[in-house]
Design a protein around this nucleic acid. Structure first.
Ligand SMILES: [Zn+2]
Ligand SMILES: [Zn+2]
Ligand SMILES: [Zn+2]
Ligand SMILES: [Zn+2]
Lengths: 158, 158
DNA sequence: CGATGCGTGTTATAATGTATCGTTGCTTCT
DNA sequence: AGAAGCAACGATACATTATAACACGCATCG
């Protein structure tokens, strides 16, 4: 997002039927987990799914209202925290951004490939989780959450 | 740093002779790299080495002046950026904090074990770098920087 | 000597994230 | 139905984290 000025139209996010389907699945998943998919939570997830790429909290805040009005920060931060807890979205620490989970069912650890040129990201399976545990065990640590974020260039940015 | 309220005296950082030695090594390393170890850069590194644990930028800002006066934010952020570029310190994204590099010579990729109870961190060798490259290659990405931060409990915090 | 590059100091401001409090709307119990 | 308990919400204010912009000093190089 800094170095080259290629502009690639990203793969874009979900729209129409696909979007509604994904939201319905999220509804189901919350219901099964005994959690409440409220209006602001659903709206935040919809925005992330539509975007199809990492979004900053304040980008969401600016476009949150269906009527074009901005939301108050706590509204969006609370929704994003909820979505992260449920595994419906992930926070990308190195970008201060959030992205809808692309890996379907179940809460899970995630890892990301991130293009520093165009901002595209790809969620991948965390590699070598057993090696993490081994390294932690060597040092006597008990690990419950691992952040893995690999920065570079996507295929389109060479 | 949130859940349990144990207070463990951390392993603490460097002092006296050890501190001066580490700073001299950093001086040498910059000289060899053709970079300038200026006063604010050296001061920032000294504070990180003394602390021996991750420090927030504004914690450094508050104690930056030898005379007890605070520094201006850009002074410290620039110094931290420099130290990160040289591999003399690392930024920990999930904490918004910085820590002196514990792995001696050469710029290198890093990984961290982080105790969410007491704030202790341990720099470890990044695990499975070949698997990162493989995963990236599968997706067509070319990676140049990987963030790995494992959160949990240190031995002292159970 | 300019001219260029790099680092600094300073001011101001931008971007990101939380604390708190009163209200609302369920669910559960009586 | 009514009351109590709880989770989420909306709003205000505030805290924390980070950068932009510009003037200056001081080296290096033609
Ligand atoms: Zn996911
Ligand atoms: Zn790209
Ligand atoms: Zn290191
Ligand atoms: Zn600990």
């Amino acid at each position: 997002m800094a170095e080259c000025e290629h502009v690639h139209e990203g793969p874009a996010g979900l729209t129409g039927r696909d979007l509604n389907h994904a939201l319905s699945q999220a509804d189901d998943r919350c219901a099964r987990a005994g959690e409440r998919m409220t209006q602001p939570r659903r709206r935040a997830l919809a925005l992330l799914l539509e975007a199809g790429r990492p979004m900053k909290a304040y980008d969401l805040i600016d476009i949150f209202g269906e009527d074009g009005r901005a939301a108050k920060p706590p509204t969006v931060y609370r929704a994003l925290d909820f979505l992260s807890r449920q595994g419906l979205a992930h926070r990308i620490e190195s970008l201060n951004a959030y992205v809808a989970c692309e890996m379907g069912e179940r809460r899970h650890a995630a890892a990301f490939l991130i293009c520093d040129c165009c901002g595209a990201t790809e969620e991948i399976e965390p590699f070598a989780p057993e090696r993490v545990q081994a390294a932690a065990a060597d040092a006597g640590y008990l690990i419950d959450r691992v952040t893995i974020e690999a920065h570079g260039r996507c295929p389109a940015c060479l």
